[in-house]
Amino acid sequence: MQKKEYGKMVKKQTPDSPTWKNMLWAFFVGGAICTLGQLLNTFFEGRGMEAELVPAAVSISLIFLSILLTSFDVYDGIAKHAGAGTIVPITGFANAVASPAIEFKTEGYILGVGAKMFTVAGPVITYGVVSSVLAGIVYYLFLM
């Protein structure tokens, strides 16, 4: 049997991911996280926080909650269903940094926690910075 023919057999036997179900979960859980962000925003504003500080306070609160849920073995349980709904918001980034930090603690604080902390989130930082630079160049050339 040829590899190509076997590839077709494999494709036929392997169930597809439940795309619609995943999208609905992602929509509602992702939406819930954003709603929570908005609630926090309103809360901080209502407490008289300076407008410039509010976005940072909201992000810090969401990151704190995400890491707390990660450390109590809850976040991955939600993420199992929510998929992109928990990965895309800032909570997903926090989980991606906190989870290897927990996992590699056994290898010490320097080469374990310190070095491995960004193994999952590293690409986001790298390409986030690259995209920012490119966006900056475009802005400088065309919009300044």
Binding site: D16, S17, A79, K80, A98, S99
Partner: peptide
């Protein structure tokens, strides 16, 4: 999981296969 895939507490989805 630690060696081959992701940290245990990482929130990812496993495909059906």
């Amino acid at each position: 999981e630690k060696q081959y895939r992701f940290p245990l507490e990482y929130g990812g989805q496993r495909p059906p296969g």
